[in-house]
């Protein structure tokens, strides 16, 4: 079980190594020969202009896209591709750029879906709903309530998420990912479309999750001030290629990165 393997890796050591990953859709190249490593317990940011291949990179990491070539070393094992279910079981959770919540369900139920993998009772027991099932439900409900407290979602516990405002939906989505008690959390633009206060809240949640639960965080974000503030290390993509990597101060000085963001002076 790779969940145990991830847990056995000491903090500060590589947990995901991306090795020469390329990804193409027909003739369109989304990623070309990208390599980087994510270390356990850090906040790792992927940045780059629109269309740089950032979301595709996350999709490769949790198995939604199959890379055309290259390898992913995950918890010490080389593999050609990931499979979403395997990724989830191995403790990778993620949020999406365009919110992917279960719109017909309440906040509470959405968060409870994050616990699905950890619920073990079979359907016959569930149909009878006695003893062990009830106990299991209550146990997971308790876990979920902690996430609800942490993210201040108490007031909207029973509200169908489809009717919540955008900022809250983003928070519920983070909640669902946190309810999975992930080892690695992939966040795709968690602060897009938010105002400054909401961004501050979100940054606080992300940093607390990283601090207290020691969750490794891989983050895509466009707001440079946020990225520079909260990330330990950064990789920069442009047109599907890696053009820079390092800690925030190194990135700020990187010539290629500045060119990509500001355009090259003619």
């Amino acid at each position: 079980m790779s969940l145990a393997k991830i847990q056995s890796i000491p903090y500060g050591k590589e947990v995901i190594k991306i090795k020469n990953i390329s990804l193409a859709f027909g003739g369109v190249k989304a990623l070309t020969d990208v390599s980087f490593e994510v270390k356990k317990g850090e906040v790792f940011a992927i940045i780059g202009p629109n269309g740089a291949g950032k979301s595709s990179m996350l999709n490769v990491i949790n198995g939604f896209y199959k890379p055309t070539s290259g390898q992913i070393n995950f918890a010490g094992e080389d593999r050609k591709e990931m499979i979403p279910e395997f990724a989830a079981k191995s403790g990778i959770a993620r949020t999406f750029q365009n919110i992917a919540l279960f719109k017909g369900m309440s906040t509470l139920d959405n968060l409870m879906t994050g616990r699905l993998l950890k619920q073990k009772q079979n359907f016959l027991m569930q149909a009878l709903y006695f003893g062990p099932v009830q106990k299991e439900e209550a146990y997971h409900r308790d876990k979920v309530e902690r996430v609800i407290d942490f993210l201040d979602l108490q007031a909207i516990r029973r509200t169908p998420v489809g009717s919540l405002p955008y900022g809250l939906q983003k928070r519920v989505e983070l909640g669902r990912a946190l309810a999975m008690e992930p080892e690695i959390l992939l966040l795709d633009e968690p602060m897009a479309g938010m105002n400054v206060e909401e961004k501050q809240d979100m940054s606080r949640f992300v940093l607390t999750a990283n601090d207290e639960f020691k969750t490794t965080i891989v983050l895509i974000e466009h707001d440079m001030s946020v990225v520079m503030d909260i990330s330990d290390r950064i990789v920069v993509l442009d047109y599907g290629k890696k053009i820079g990597e390092g800690n925030p101060s190194e990135i700020l000085k990187n010539k290629a990165v500045i060119d990509a963001y500001l355009g090259v002076a003619d």
Partner: peptide, 9 residues
């Protein structure tokens, strides 16, 4: 949302 469901396992 079947895609999101798949990704949470």
């Amino acid at each position: 949302m079947d895609i999101a469901a798949e990704i949470i396992g």
